[in-house]
Design a protein around this nucleic acid. Structure first.
Length: 446
RNA sequence: GGAACGGUGGCAGAGUGGACGAAUGCAGCCGCCUUGAAAGCGGCCGGCCGCAAGGCUCGGGGGUUCGAAUCCCUCCCGUUCCGCCA
């Protein structure tokens, strides 16, 4: 949620910033919000004046009753009763407008960072780190999609996953399952130097899902457990961002950096039928998320640090990659500035987004009400609070990295070499070989 | 899931219709004392919005009342016991 006060202090600035996102309807929404805000200001002014009078009267009535002046008290009470009617009318008007304004504000996206590149869609995203590790010529044995290689090796059994849970669920087996877990371990160990490991809940309340911006706009994308009013997390970003919800932190303890390995659940409404093969898009997947709470001053450096971490994870695995910056037209709803790490997948000759590192400015913190208090040079607390800035991104998203490993490390005989850095997490397995006959059998009927 | 008891400032903990934005203690801040510190003494001291006037704030929401921390309804959360359970 953007700062409501900006609607009063810098309406042209807000509109100019949002215009860069390229959706003209947004500007009308901003105007509507500003109009509501002005009306609300007027209503609260009148309401507060009435309340002030009622408060004065009730104190006076108490005094008169103690002094035994019943008549005067009765007269004041009568006046106050009328004021009460007026106040009730104003209050209900206020609640209506405030709810409408909040809905509008929740729907407005974040203002893009001034340095974020302008652009209409993903074709305008500039490449900021040119492809690293790309082969001049891709050998034929790498031109095999990971699902073919993995299924043949018996390490991916999506056919049975679908039997168990339906379309767009995956199941890794044997060395494939071990590889998935190894990637998580690798991702955590790589970032344990500054990020505290957390194991958050996977089911969260409506309030928590609203704080990160998934609700109300993107309710269709999340799994809801209606009976208990809980939601499955679409990313560990959701519970991690809300760790300090409603709290006021000290600038002296910032930045606070956390990370979590979790499963993520996404309905992928609107993507049904896309990328249905292999591991590229699934309703449930694992990843390691890194996240930071920071002062506005700390945020830019943290953004580069976190992009660097996502990059090192991929570079360390020896995968070919590039980094692009997300342009204003392609940016997510709550993003202020955003970078993607993309891995080259030779099997399908595509770039796979494996990590998206974003700076949210105070957009999430305002929804989740995470503040911080500043201290001056002498260590004394400065009056007032500000919202923290949040940043997050995947340090390692399992499925696509898993797929990229299978495609890039495929050998001519169909086996897959395990990247050096993962072997310590894989009981020393160096190479994933063709399976024994028994486990490769297709699932049969009853 | 059942039952009982709870939720008040940074913490502990009073407060059952008005003088309560809230006693008291601890913590914190300022000063005195001290070579320095501790102890002691004196004073200040919740938060949010607002230029201010003022408004809001005793778990959330609603109600009764001239007036609610206090009474009523409702929801949420916590503790303990029972049940179930990895």
């Amino acid at each position: 949620m953007i700062d409501q006060r900006l609607l009063r202090t810098d309406l042209p600035g807000v509109k100019a910033a949002l215009a860069r996102r390229g959706r003209s309807s947004l500007l009308d929404e901003v105007d509507a919000a500003a109009a509501l805000d002005a009306r609300l200001l007027d209503i609260t002014g009148r309401r507060d004046a009435i309340r002030a009078r009622v408060n004065t009267i009730s104190k006076e009535v108490g005094r008169l009753r103690r002094d035994g002046d019943v008549d005067a008290a009765e007269r004041l009470q009568a006046e106050s009763r009328e004021l009460g009617d007026e106040e009730r009318a104003l209050a209900s008007e206020h609640d209506e407008e405030a709810a409408a304004l909040r809905e509008l504000l929740l729907g407005l996206p974040n203002l893009p960072h001034p340095d974020a590149p302008d652009g209409a869609d993903d074709s305008d995203n500039p490449v900021v780190i040119a492809p690293v590790g790309i082969l001049d010529e891709v050998p034929a044995h790498l031109r095999v999609p990971h699902w073919e290689t993995a299924t043949a090796l018996g390490i991916l059994d999506n056919e049975r996953a679908v039997k168990i849970s339906g379309a767009m669920f995956t199941m890794q087996r044997g060395a494939g399952a071990t590889l998935a877990r190894a990637l998580c371990q690798y991702g955590l160990d790589l970032n344990a130097d500054v990020h505290e490991e957390v194991r958050p809940p996977s089911l969260v309340s409506t309030a928590t899902l609203t704080a990160t911006g998934q609700l109300p706009k993107f309710a269709d994308d999340a799994y809801a457990i209606e009976r208990d009013d809980l939601w499955c997390i679409p990313t560990a970003e959701v519970p991690l961002t809300s760790i300090y919800a409603g709290e006021t932190l000290d600038d002296t303890e910032l930045p606070i950096r956390v990370m979590a390995h979790s499963s993520s659940y996404r309905r992928e409404a609107g993507s049904a039928g896309r990328d249905t093969r292999g591991m590229l898009r699934a309703h449930e997947f694992d990843k390691v998320e890194i996240l930071a709470f920071a002062t506005p001053e700390q945020a830019p450096a943290l953004l580069s640090d976190m992009v660097g971490r996502a990059e090192r994870a991929i570079a360390g695995l020896g995968l070919p990659y590039r980094i692009i910056e997300i342009c204003t037209g392609d940016m997510g709803q709550s993003h202020h500035r955003s970078f993607d790490v993309e891995v080259y997948a030779p099997g399908t000759d595509t770039w796979l987004e494996v990590s998206s590192i974003s700076w949210f400015s105070d957009y999430q913190a305002r929804r989740g009400n995470v503040r911080f208090k500043r201290h001056d040079a002498s260590g004394k607390a400065v009056k007032g609070t500000e919202f923290v800035h949040t940043l997050n991104g995947s340090a390692l998203a399992v499925p696509r990295v898993w797929a990229a490993i299978i495609e890039n490390y495929r050998n001519a005989d169909g086996s897959v070499t395990v990247p050096e850095v993962l072997r310590q997490y894989m009981r020393g397995i160096e190479r994933i070989e063709a399976p024994l006959a028994a486990s490769s059998a297709k699932p049969g009927g009853e």
